[in-house]
Nucleic acid binder design. Sequence first.
DNA 1: ATGAAAGCGCTAACAC
DNA 2: GTGTTAGCGCTTTCAT
Lengths: 338, 338
Amino acid sequence: MKIRRSVTMEDIARMAHVSKPTVSRALRNSPLVTPETRKLVMDLAQKHGYVVNRNAQKLRQSRSDTIAVVLDFKSHRENRISDPFIFNLLAGVSEALGQREQDLLLCAPGHAEIESLSAIIASRGADGIIFLGEGERRPDFVDLAALGVPFVVWGSVEQDQSYCAVGSDNFHGGFLAGQHLLDRGRSRFLFVGDSRFHEISQRRQGLVAALAKSDKPTHLSDLIMDGFSYASTLEAARAMIESDKATVPDAVFAASDTAAMALISALGDAGLSVPGDVSVVGYNNIPGAEYFSPPLTTIGQDVHMAGALLVEKLMLHIEGRAPASTMLDTRLIVRESS
Amino acid sequence: MKIRRSVTMEDIARMAHVSKPTVSRALRNSPLVTPETRKLVMDLAQKHGYVVNRNAQKLRQSRSDTIAVVLDFKSHRENRISDPFIFNLLAGVSEALGQREQDLLLCAPGHAEIESLSAIIASRGADGIIFLGEGERRPDFVDLAALGVPFVVWGSVEQDQSYCAVGSDNFHGGFLAGQHLLDRGRSRFLFVGDSRFHEISQRRQGLVAALAKSDKPTHLSDLIMDGFSYASTLEAARAMIESDKATVPDAVFAASDTAAMALISALGDAGLSVPGDVSVVGYNNIPGAEYFSPPLTTIGQDVHMAGALLVEKLMLHIEGRAPASTMLDTRLIVRESS
DNA sequence: ATGAAAGCGCTAACAC
DNA sequence: GTGTTAGCGCTTTCAT
């Protein structure tokens, strides 16, 4: 199967002594073609290494069978990966798209602005967009929805949203974390995570709700930090512990497993043990959480299903339907060495 | 900027009272068009939300300005991520492609066979391919090269290779790890990693070379395991430690940081401390290695540059040049708590 | 500096 | 079941 350009559908047609449309039908398994013709065409195509020109096909059908996927690579440069979780999600989406024979166009950071994104659709580069991670882009989503761009978002799911979202039940996840920490008899809480991010903010609210139900008095403080990397989390945590030894927390809920790991390190440096002195709960159940020492108690979600759902809903949207948002179950995964 | 299909170049031409080719030239900043005409056209396009149809463009130019990226998602499903390192690489590639205004087509697991891949090129879906990770695909690479498909590989770099590769100096990395462990006075070595993978095998060979230079007698064993996940590594490590307490290693070189982490856990369970009883060296310097407890000594490489190089070489290849392979420096990153 | 004509490779619409 | 005709939206000649 040698690759030479220039082998076109017309060539195959000529060789098979049929017309171009017949070749087209044969290759696409149309029932309108006799098995003999089909076989003849198929064999010829195989023999000459012929493959339909996707660009011509797309132009003609005015459909690209391509989905653009946007993820927040910005925070992934220079090793500042916030959480490997998002890549599991990408793998799930990739697989789901593959099953539907849709191509996956991965958008570069530069293409993350709303104009570029709607341009991708307008230029027929993709039929729809999947955003992996909401971040601070909610206003963009509202605008895109108003423009009629077909897209779905992995992020927080709320009522009266003008677009379709799939996300874990962040509030419930935070609530579960809070309950778990209360069950451990903890009272001085620390929340770690950037609340400007909507999904993170909801996790915090879940925590607050759990604390509100407690009989005993509790105290909640926030770890404010610049950026989301391990390094900055670690630094902020160390500074906090140093500054006020008296109010060091005995319970930590971190909005990502990586942040939780950084915090456990900082606590260890200060001579505090986890889970002895401080209980910690993370989020996402990243591969690695299980093998961290100490093993990380965390909130897990079904990434594989998330990918499948995102794709399914987007396809519906592209076909003109209006898919509903879905909130995925979250579960507490307790990992105590004792 | 409302999205309505149907706004075509012809429409803009009519509105500007010029011809289609002129609009085309104006939009592509051709010097053959007067500034006034250009401005007129640009404004009209802006006003009507016109964007050129990429598919028509690609068909006409018989160039897709798209690069296919293949990564081994198979081992990433079901949380069986071998190493987040590969995603840093993806981020680097994505950025480099973005700078050259090339689209990134992320290939699904199903498209990983050689026929599908050359079909992607033949069908003008992409102009070239970047493989992130060599794995066991070397025979495919040789075939693809013979077919004249433009591609580059992140993997091991060797002499007399029929294709262009970019990779870290795996042998040297292994050598550095070996030296470091010998410097620690260790003698009972364990290598962890699947040697069927070429790059992994080279790391092992580097280790062997370092050991061969030692004055003192050394012993090297291998941890054989099924798969590459944390879980299986951990399990295999535990089984090994259990089975023969007498020959438990005092030096471990793991071909990935994640494997190193799993091993440290297993050692810890068995009452062995790192780096007290056992010295461990990982590979890749993943974000997280620094904050693991104990902080992980590892072999690092410049992912950002790797991405840029891969893209640069592929573009050369597409333009008909024959870019040389490049081996990137590796460095030992020592992180000892003491 | 601009326009007219042609055609990239394919498929939809219709005819038979 | 198959062929004919037309055209998707763009860019590349080649003219002027």
